[in-house]
Amino acid sequence: MTKYNYIMKKIIFLKFCFFFFSLTAQEFITIQSTTSLRDSGFYNYIQDKYQEESSTKLKLVAVGTGQAIENAKKCDADLLFVHHEQSEMKFVKNGYGLYRKVIMHNDFILVGPKNDPAGIKIKKNIKEALKIIYNSKHPFVSRGDKSGTHLKEQELWALVGIKIEKKKSDWYFESGSGMGSSLNFAVNIGAYILSDRSTWISFGNKKNHTIIVENEPLLVNNYGIIPINPKNCPTTKSSEAEKFIYWLKSKEGRSLINNFRVNGQQVFFSSQGVN
């Protein structure tokens, strides 16, 4: 027996030991995704539906877009399902992903206290709103975690030409955590915050907060899906991953997305024809 064979046998034995605790041999694909898909209940919904079609299980790891991309780069995913176009295009361009397909969209919203202490509602415009918040120094909570929502927020600040000096500011708070935790934070200190619509609708601790700005072209929120490039990650399950994408883009998949409701409201809109 060669030494190589011996080592391989050992590895197989160890794998067998680990197997005792791990999942059953069922085929599954790992999706690195954003917290909004999980927290809104969308993922549970789509997983149940997909199980009727396929024996492939879905394992969804919900983190911020930034972390999801980093995890996918390390090959800890078969699919990347996030919402920041620029980062996604870069991911594909650098050879980590095969291609990007936009699956669905909704929008970002500005959430704040019902009495709107900064007086934004009259303007109903996100650019103006950010300027008012900046000038009035009313508390604002940022995700600060390189998530899709955080990146979007940074783009918006840049768009209105405001550069925030985070260190000195006593009104701009970086929560450094997920959308839900950040909403909890904002609600408790009576701050404004940029959120995706699905998380807000399913959020259970709204108290006296409500939507201040919504329905603006600038605030569109596209969810893109990317299969991992097998050239970079040889163990990735490309065909199972692509089957899932194909299913999401199918007529059935599209209508399932459109029929998903949170508290009676539609939160995702299937994107047609784009990419």
């Binding site: 794998k15 197997f19 605790f21 791990s22 090959c75 800890d76």
Partner: peptide
């Protein structure tokens, strides 16, 4: 997966 013991494929499992 890209780590030194990635071949065990136990990330994201109870193991």
């Amino acid at each position: 997966k890209s780590g030194p013991l990635g071949f065990f494929e136990i990330l994201y499992t109870p193991t």
